[in-house]
């Protein structure tokens, strides 16, 4: 697999390490249902057949975390974004900068 790091360009997957589903977001620890929310955040995952947003880390490259959209059926990489940019946009949308 080759992943197009938005900072470094196309690199083989041996430069990256994988974390998992990027659609789960760290919950608000102060929320009343924090325990349940963190449990879901830590353990509950959909087993997606198709395009999935995933967190990858450019470990042997620029150390950027990336949100990679990968089709789990054929490993086609459909999109790669800087995780920090995605997270900032998410915060902006939710108005939750900490």
């Amino acid at each position: 697999m080759r992943i197009n790091c938005p900072h470094c360009g196309l690199r083989s997957n041996d430069e990256f390490s994988y974390l998992g589903d990027a659609s789960v977001v760290r919950p608000d620890p102060a929320a009343p249902n924090a325990t349940e929310a963190f449990y879901a955040f830590g353990y509950e995952r959909a087993n997606i057949a198709g395009p999935m947003q995933e967190l990858w880390y450019h470990a042997a490259g620029c150390h950027a975390w990336l949100v990679v959209t990968r089709d789990t059926r054929n490993h086609e990489i459909l999109d790669v974004k800087s995780a920090q940019e995605v997270a900032l946009e998410r915060q902006k949308a939710a108005g939750t900068a900490q």
């Binding site: 950027a64 975390w65 915060q91 900068a97």
Partner: peptide, 12 residues
């Protein structure tokens, strides 16, 4: 730490 910095709290 990079995950925390970039993904959890990108605004810090």
């Amino acid at each position: 730490l990079e995950l925390c910095r970039q993904w959890y709290w990108p605004d810090l």
